[in-house]
Amino acid sequence: MKTRGSNSADTINRIRGALGEHLLNFEKKSGRRVYIDIAPETVLEASSLMFEETGARLQIATGIDTPAGIEVMYHWALDSEDCLVTIRATVAHEDPSLDSIATLCPAAEWIEREMWELLGIEFRDHPDLRHLLLDDNWPQGNYPLRKFPSGQEVIP
């Protein structure tokens, strides 16, 4: 099997350049894993850069509750260059909201619904924000994946 080599340096540099001052932190863990931090307001621009201009595939988005805020990570795969790029935005506990990328990239629709119900992140302009996995009468404000709840009780 001929593998297409891991030759992502050019693309990564282009992404870095295009993000410009939006880029808060850049970490190259290895040739195959890159982590980029951006400000939460610029998620939509960064996603359109990845999806439309770079042609990356949205693997999935993940949310993690940390003391500093809720990290939302968008995992993009550069399939032809054997590299996974993770774009990370941290939103504050007080106002956990982000722009929805579901209209740009339909693949994100379900995961945004999931993060909304499990982590309590509001996605602005999401076409259809309602429960995906949990029961419709799941108690409001009870987010199972929150670890540092500000006032919310997590069902044990």
């Binding site: 099997m1 593998t3 195959r32 595939r57 795969a77 399939d79 054997d82 996974l84």
Partner: peptide
């Protein structure tokens, strides 16, 4: 045309011959 076994080689997929 995506296949993680070829695009992001892992396990033994980079060491054997397949399509």
């Amino acid at each position: 045309d995506i296949d993680v076994r070829r695009d992001h080689p892992h396990a033994a997929y980079g060491m054997v011959d397949w399509d």
